[in-house]
């Protein structure tokens, strides 16, 4: 493999890694929306919170693997608490109330994080086994990014198992395509909502931990990822998991190759793609509802 090809391949894998992380965030977002009708604007804040949790866990235990497991779980607990004690109470006031409540939660998390950890960039150190480069056919590639792709695949696998092999998954899939169905089936809706919200934030949490060593941990972390994840959900179609998957990967590659060739306009590319798709189909690529 000559060096130019190697570079293209490396960019491709970069894009894949980012796309996978994006999908972890976006799929939670779209699942919560499809299930509960709530657009969780605090989703990116949870993502960032998890990155800070992983930093804290690493600082306390010195073990990366514990941080990797604990941070998303802690984030999910926060998510469940938010759902149980805040969102559930305003459910009766309709979606605007819920939407704005998540804005409030997001503001509080973003600012509380600054109060606890300051505004400096914090570094998350990787264990030796994940550092360094891997050599494949003349291509040198960071081990950690491959690990991220693998990690995302594992989460995806768990998700697929939950969705297609469990009763909860059946309910969720039914609800995403038809919300009234859940009520008709006689299911403990509040419990399912809480679980879905918890799983969604857990996935955002995994993404947060995964990105921490790459980008460092800082308050602006939520902005970029949050916006990209929303764009994915809007473009892929509200409540559509397959739409979110395809668009995540497309966006990952777009931003990776975009930075390479037209770096100044790279951030605009996703918006352009989104605008084109929305003009043709206002509900997004695979979306059927608004």
């Amino acid at each position: 493999m000559d060096s130019t090809t190697a570079m293209y391949v490396a960019q491709g894998i970069h894009g894949l890694a980012y796309g996978m992380i994006l999908f972890l965030v976006a799929s939670g977002l779209t699942m919560i929306f499809g299930m509960m009708g709530i657009l969780n604007l605090a989703h990116a804040a949870f993502f960032m919170l998890s990155a800070y949790f992983s930093y804290q866990a690493l600082a306390m235990t010195g073990n990366y693997w514990i941080a990797l497991l604990a941070a998303p779980l802690a984030t999910a607990v926060v998510g469940v608490l938010v759902e149980r004690f805040l969102l559930r109470k305003v459910h009766a006031f309709g979606h605007v109330g819920e939407l704005l409540l998540t804005v409030g939660v997001s503001l509080v998390i973003l600012d509380a994080v600054k109060a606890f950890w300051g505004t400096e960039s914090l570094y998350v150190d990787l264990p030796e086994s994940l550092k360094g480069l891997i050599h494949v056919g003349g291509l040198e590639y960071p081990v950690y990014r491959l690990f991220v792709i693998g990690l995302a695949l594992v989460v995806l696998f768990i998700m697929a198992f939950l969705l297609y092999r469990t009763r909860l998954g059946m309910v969720v899939r039914a609800a995403v395509s038809d919300a009234d169905m859940v009520n008709a089936l006689g299911i403990n809706v509040p419990l399912v909502f809480m679980l879905v919200f918890g799983i969604g934030t857990w996935m955002a949490g995994v993404a947060g931990v995964a990105i921490a060593p790459i980008l460092t941990v800082f308050p602006g972390l939520a902005d970029q990822m949050g916006m990209d994840a929303f764009l994915v959900v809007v473009t892929g179609g509200f409540g559509s998991l397959s739409g979110a998957f395809i668009i995540s990967l497309v966006f990952g590659e777009l931003s990776s190759y975009g930075v390479q060739f037209i770096s100044a306009l790279a951030p605009v590319l996703m918006f352009v793609l989104m605008a084109i798709i929305l003009v043709i189909k206002p509900t997004g690529l695979f979306g059927e509802r608004e």
């Binding site: 305003v90 006031f93 109330g97 704005l100 804005v103 409030g104 503001l107 509080v108 973003l110 600012d111």
Partner: peptide
């Protein structure tokens, strides 16, 4: 922003 967020949550609740 923290204060604003808390006020917003309080008002909605």
């Amino acid at each position: 922003e923290l204060v604003m967020g808390l006020i917003l949550i309080g008002v909605i609740l």
